[in-house]
Design a protein around this nucleic acid. Sequence first.
DNA 1: CTTGTGTGGTTGCATCATAAAACCATATGC
DNA 2: GCATATGGTTTTATGATGCAACCACACAAG
Lengths: 155, 155
Amino acid sequence: MVKRTSFEGDSCPIARSLEAIGDWWSLLIIREALFGLRRFGEFQSKLGMAKNILSARLRSLVDHGILATAPASDGSAYQEYVLTPKGRGTFPILVALRQWSEEFDDHPEQIATVLVDREKGRPIRKLEMRAEDGRLLTPADTMVKLRPPPRRRSA
Amino acid sequence: MVKRTSFEGDSCPIARSLEAIGDWWSLLIIREALFGLRRFGEFQSKLGMAKNILSARLRSLVDHGILATAPASDGSAYQEYVLTPKGRGTFPILVALRQWSEEFDDHPEQIATVLVDREKGRPIRKLEMRAEDGRLLTPADTMVKLRPPPRRRSA
DNA sequence: CTTGTGTGGTTGCATCATAAAACCATATGC
DNA sequence: GCATATGGTTTTATGATGCAACCACACAAG
């Protein structure tokens, strides 16, 4: 079996995220969902992707608890796909991807949109990493540490 | 032509990011690179991936300006792959993925590591989106706006 | 009741990417 | 010179993707 190398049991949280949303379409579907889309046909026409793949992706996102199927809303007897809290929780990931593109893309003039805050209409700040005490951190200021074992109440 | 649907010309910055780092392995390679790995064999043994794919990914990352090949450093006459500033700029993306996993993973006990600040050894803060004036923003507080055209000096 | 049309999918097939292993090239140790 | 480790490329099988065609259901018109 060749199996596309699943990261399901991996202990790295990044790999685990990628397992759920690390493919080509999932994040774009989530982006559209955050933008307000809910119906199969809306996603399909907006993203221009094959319907079978959209179907498979939606199912996968539902399985991962990122989308949930709601019975309907306009009475159409069809399904709607709405973001769960877990799904809305991907927003910082999308923002980080967007800002990376804005900062480093070789052809930034081809980027058509800006993310702004609704109230003032001004671009949002760049995401920054801060320590618990508020110090601004660069990658070099951080390290990964083994997580302390989940100490059950003392044997 | 079936062609895996390139987003190269897409105007969405998220799609443009995914074009460069949206596949299964690229972000994991970058993660290891941020961790300090540089050599082909290091990546290969750490990630356990097929060498041909690693080769293709490294080449793609170099083409995208995320990695650069350095002639050597220990005199081995071989190549090293080091992150460019653009490559290091992906750090917030990795942090966002990590934090999403930490917050929403169905089996958080399987996550083995924590990202801490090197100085204090304490976990870093959750990324947050803020407006230009510092207000904390939720997804609902934001919207995408068409980028104003790049106004060349008045015709 | 039958037909038509739009939405929401599933199925089939051709093509592409991925994975595993074998193979090749260069450098180093003996 | 010969074995071995490193750094890849080639070969081949299989899974994933993309497109088009098809199917199922709801609703409306005739």
